[in-house]
Simulated assay, not measured.
Amino acid sequence: MKHIPSKAWLLPVALLTGCAFDAGEGFAVLEPSVEAAYTPLSRRNAGDGYQALATDFQLRVDAGAVSLGSIDLQASSGGGGSTTFDPSSPPPGYTLCHGGHCHREDGALVDYADVEAELNGGGGSSTVTVAKLPVDAELDLLSPAVRDLTCEPACELGKTSLSRGRWSVTGLRMTGRVRDGRVPARFAGALPFRFTAAMTGDEATPVAVLTGDLDVPSDRENEPRVTLGLKLELTPALFDAVDWSAVTVGADGVVDLDAPANKTVRAALLEKVAALSPTAEVSRGSR
């Protein structure tokens, strides 16, 4: 009987084990977090906590918070986009992919090529949501803290490339004081103000939907562990759009930007909110 070297028979087993391990793994695993902050700018410092505005008014924020619904992590699909069908990570509506076809939830067997064509929308360019990050919380803007997030359906990604984050802002509230930096002043002293915005309507329309660029490839060429630090930063530039000499002061001596008399000013402020662009800090490592 011919003797088989002890290491020779291990090679096929090792290869099979390696294939099975790779097929069951995701290409990247996210560790996401979020932070929101109101950040004064040194070049705008006007003393006593006030910040100079483009209109020569000076403003101080005494309290502020933003409420976030969810942050959708999206990738391009179709039209040469970077999202690729991965059999080890069946797309929504499918339970298992193997042997050249996928099992659809209705019992049908669909070829890999047809599944990929379906994901790419028949060749048109679009975006798909790869993962949702539920926040559903109010974040203090003046005492910012990093909040760890979970992913739906999972933080383990198939082969794709995250290209943007879509933020749902469900509320914003700020209070503070504003004074005039001109001489002579357009009004005397410092006026207290308040601003509150929340989701409205039967369909709960967000206050704003923001988008921020991402560059997070999920593939075998990059380290799989992805620390994703998402941040929304508000600065005094938000209030550059407000003409404080045109606001109406309430009977209580407070400028209520939610009052009907200040609807034009409020609209200008909300337009600046809608133009905010969240940022992302990405670092990668091995598992």
Results as ranks from 00 to 15, higher is better:
179 R>F: 04
262 N>A: 07
226 V>P: 02
68 L>C: 09
219 D>G: 13
92 P>F: 09
249 V>K: 07
161 S>E: 15
115 V>E: 03
247 V>L: 09
111 D>M: 05
88 S>E: 06
242 V>S: 00
193 F>N: 04
197 A>K: 00
83 T>S: 15
151 C>M: 06
71 I>H: 10
208 A>R: 00
66 V>L: 15
76 S>A: 15
31 E>I: 06
28 A>T: 11
236 P>Y: 03
161 S>C: 13
138 E>T: 15
161 S>V: 11
233 E>N: 14
64 G>R: 01
212 G>M: 08
224 P>L: 04
210 L>W: 05
201 G>P: 07
137 A>Q: 14
180 D>S: 10
107 G>P: 04
98 H>V: 12
217 P>G: 10
185 A>P: 07
226 V>L: 10
237 A>G: 08
189 G>N: 03
203 E>L: 05
203 E>W: 05
233 E>K: 13
220 R>M: 14
226 V>Q: 04
88 S>Q: 11
232 L>Y: 07
126 S>F: 06
174 M>P: 02
53 L>M: 08
228 L>M: 13
123 G>E: 10
170 T>R: 06
273 V>E: 00
33 S>H: 09
90 P>G: 07
239 F>S: 01
239 F>Y: 07
151 C>N: 09
147 R>P: 08
6 S>C: 01
142 L>M: 09
193 F>G: 02
125 S>E: 10
225 R>D: 06
278 P>T: 08
59 L>F: 04
193 F>I: 06
90 P>R: 07
93 G>L: 01
251 A>E: 13
171 G>Y: 00
11 L>F: 08
8 A>S: 05
152 E>R: 11
205 T>I: 12
137 A>N: 13
145 A>K: 10
128 V>R: 08
228 L>F: 12
95 T>R: 12
250 G>P: 08
206 P>R: 03
136 D>G: 14
115 V>S: 02
90 P>I: 11
20 A>M: 10
